[in-house]
Simulated assay, not measured.
Amino acid sequence: MNWYRRVGVALTASLLGGLMASGTAGAATPKDVCGWTSTPVGWVEVKYWDSSRCGSTGGGMYNTKRITDTSDVAAGGTVSACTYSPIPSGFHITRYSSVSDCNRSRGTSDYHNRVGLVNLAGLPKGTTKTICGLFEVPAGWTVHSRSKSVDCQQYKYGYPSNDNTMTIRKS
């Protein structure tokens, strides 16, 4: 393999490695599908755009999405998804942020468009995790504390006025 090819392979591996979510057991190969296609159970949406492959691109919403299987995300592992994505069973939101890949349309929004998710399924008793929200306590977990966090604010601007985060402990 010549020098240019090695550098290209190393650069590609480095870029892809930076895009991988931490805590995954082995990332599944993403699939590009038309936007009107249902996202399968256990998969998340990670990118939206227009593609002539999926028909007319004249509407307000992008017509293509990239989806990724989360079945290989280990207990306690994390993955990022667009906020419009279904959240797989056992996963809970840990933070909100914004990236251009998760813009579902050409318009702008005052709300974040990406979530960080943690897989709580299979974690041992006594484990603590901090998740966004206050009302939906996962089954088998108890609330240890509640607080405010900019990471858990869906709105892009300002500081949260109310508690929006809870630290939970596996019972």
Rank of each mutant, 00 (worst) to 15 (best):
D151F: 09
Y4Q: 11
W43I: 15
Y96W: 13
G76Y: 06
L134I: 14
T57C: 06
M1S: 13
C82K: 10
C102Y: 01
D110M: 12
N164L: 09
D69A: 11
H112L: 06
G107H: 00
A74T: 04
R6L: 05
A75I: 08
G17W: 03
V118K: 03
N2F: 05
G55M: 05
A13I: 12
I87H: 04
S51W: 12
A28V: 13
V46K: 12
T37H: 04
M166R: 10
K47C: 06
A25G: 14
W43M: 15
I168K: 00
R106S: 13
T70Q: 07
A10D: 12
E136F: 10
P138Y: 11
K31E: 15
R95L: 06
M166S: 08
N162M: 05
S52W: 11
T57E: 08
N119R: 05
S71N: 11
T130P: 00
V9C: 00
S98W: 02
Y159M: 03
V7D: 06
D50A: 00
T70S: 13
T130S: 03
S14D: 10
D50T: 05
R95Q: 04
G126W: 06
K125E: 08
T94G: 01
G55T: 13
C34A: 14
A27Q: 15
G76E: 02
L19Y: 07
G76K: 02
P88Y: 09
R169K: 14
S89R: 06
K148A: 04
P88D: 14
Q154W: 09
A10R: 05
P30W: 12
A74L: 12
A81R: 01
G18Q: 10
P40H: 13
V46S: 14
E136D: 15
P124S: 15
R95P: 05
M20A: 13
T94N: 02
W36S: 15
V44D: 08
S161F: 09
W141A: 00
C54W: 04
G55V: 11
S51C: 09
G26W: 01
T78C: 07
A10M: 11
V150F: 07
F135I: 08
N63T: 08
G76H: 02
S149N: 03
E136M: 05
W43R: 13
D110E: 13
I87M: 07
K31G: 03
D151E: 09
V115T: 02
G107P: 01
L123G: 08
G122A: 08
N113W: 02
D151M: 12
